[in-house]
Amino acid sequence: MSAHALLVEPFETLAFMRAALVACLALALANGAVGTLLILRRASLDGDVLGHAVMPGAAIGFLYAGPSPVWLSLGGLASGFAVAALAGLLASDRARRDVGLVAFYLIALSLGVLLVAWRGSNVEIMRVLFGTVLAIDRAALLQIAALASIILLVIAALYRPLAVGAFDPAFLLAAGIRAPYGAVFAALVVLALVASFQAFGTLLALGPMLLPAAAARCWRLGAAASIALATGFGVAASLAGLLLSYHGNLPSGPAIVLSAGVLFGMSSILAGILRRVTPVPGWST
């Protein structure tokens, strides 16, 4: 099989492959920045919880209007914001907060599945849980592109306080800066997860956000370079995953997340070897 047939032909001949690719690229742009900031804030678990928090609202949207991307997203946004606000009220004690977050996640997930199962079929439950990258229509594509653009513009405008708030939140507070950057960031995470929801479902939406960013963080670059690398990894994983699913006749969402996982595994191993070969003081493994 020629390189052209392997790499280009699937996108050349099939419109749904092109739509899926464009959607994944738009998501990779937003996810690179959001995922990196999420890891720098050490809030991966919060991201996971918000990913599932989208579920009950999306399910209610589904009950109301069927599988329409707009209603799924509006419902998802509503319940995502509600859970983000509730999580903000949780105890600041780390261990108790973790338990609270996991409780939210389990409740949201089961509630969502029950709601969809009430009126929908098993196929629809699978769609909500794992997404349908290959069934993205024009409306969904526009919605993903719009959400990704909003996320990127907000991060570009607020990049500095968001990055400093991740590093030393008390510094901003003590300097008298009261703007709720933490809440703004939580809202951005919810937006990014809602954008991913249609393509990757509630169980996998965090994957394309967290795994490329985690892979990029292995290389210990500065925050901005990490975001760029995470975006690059996200694009590579999307391409590889879509081609893998096409040629191997596999489900595409899991294939993309798995590709990102492979990048993460390779990055942690290679960066570990590189650190051993060229030891730098202070680099702990």
């Binding site: 720098l40 050490r42 991740a166 590093f167 008390a170 003590a174």
Partner: peptide, 20 residues
């Protein structure tokens, strides 16, 4: 109030954060 500097305990600072 506007001219106050606060240095929290070092454990509150993320030593691994990518910052020069």
């Amino acid at each position: 109030r506007s001219r106050l500097a606060y240095l929290p305990q070092r454990t509150a600072i993320d030593h691994e954060y990518p910052l020069t």
